[in-house]
Nucleic acid binder design. Structure first.
Length: 260
DNA sequence: CGATCTGTTAGTAG
DNA sequence: ACTACTAACAGATC
């Protein structure tokens, strides 16, 4: 489930399993995911140690050696697995085999992810036109980046160049917790509603990270576990409704979330 | 069998 | 220029 909380959990997973381990061998599969030649990645990473991790929005960065970074994007189905010896999981696209005989594998069945080497996070950030990370952004900047938007709030929250890290699932949750309709126009939102959206954005993302991004462990007041047409709304006021917003399935509660 | 799914982007239309 | 819709990518699941 790769939105900001999932990628943050993946970052911590790398920190706790793979940092300061030396890479003995690098395995690459499926050219489609690679924006840097597979051979170059194998040559660059073999013999190096993983030294540091970083994250902006849904992108994970892992520094190896002195100043080179591996950049991973999880697409819709990317996952990391740390395991000892044995066979790498199905759909492994990149496998780092460490000297201690453990492996860090990046799997991606639907191959919508991306793997590449970059020189610096700053360059990558600029080239990909990423907005400020949703966990880092200040309230002032949040409001500033929304102030000239003409469209609906949900697509704006999901636009990575406006704010980085929020996808389809978490935008629904943030809107539900803020009692704002997904199709509400940004320019129609009151200052108070923007304050609420900002606060709930931080709260939802942090709560999810604290629960290891496991949907089943989220608070009972959350919509995420009820993503089903007709499910009971968590605060008992109505039923969950499914609509399409900018081409994506969107779940919300009409009783709780008004257009204004 | 057909529809749907956590992401992104190209093409298109307004 | 901006916004939003569709299709496409590929595999799993229902």
């Amino acid at each position: 489930m790769p939105e900001l909380p999932d990628v943050e959990i993946a970052k911590r997973y790398v920190d706790s399993t793979s940092l300061h381990k030396t890479i003995k061998e690098v395995e690459t599969h499926d050219r489609k995911l690679y924006k840097t030649a597979m051979k170059r990645i194998r040559e660059a990473m073999t013999g190096k140690q993983l030294n540091e991790t970083g994250r902006i929005g849904k992108h994970l960065f892992i520094r190896f050696g002195a100043s080179q970074w591996l950049a991973l994007h999880f697409g819709m189905t990317g996952e990391l697995h740390y395991f000892k010896n044995g066979k790498a999981p199905d759909h492994t696209k990149l496998n780092l085999h460490f000297k201690n005989n453990y492996n860090l594998s990046f799997t991606c069945p639907r191959t919508f992810g991306e793997i590449q080497l970059i020189e610096s996070i700053e360059d990558f950030d600029e080239k990909h036109d990423l907005g400020p990370d949703a966990l880092e952004i200040t309230k002032k900047l949040f409001k500033k980046r929304l102030e000239n938007k003409k469209g609906m709030i949900k697509p704006v929250l999901m636009d990575q160049s406006t704010i980085a890290g929020i996808g389809n699932i978490y935008s629904d949750e943030i809107l539900y917790q803020s009692k704002v309709h997904p199709k509400a126009k940004v320019k129609d939102l009151s200052d108070k509603q923007l304050d609420t959206l900002f606060k709930k954005m931080k709260e939802v993302l942090k709560t999810s990270i604290n629960r290891k991004a496991q949907p089943d462990d989220l608070p009972k007041s959350y919509l995420i576990p009820k993503r089903k047409e007709g499910a009971d709304c968590p605060d008992g006021k109505g039923q969950v409704k499914k609509i399409k917003v900018s081409g994506r399935g969107c779940y919300y509660c009409p009783e709780v979330q008004s257009l204004r």
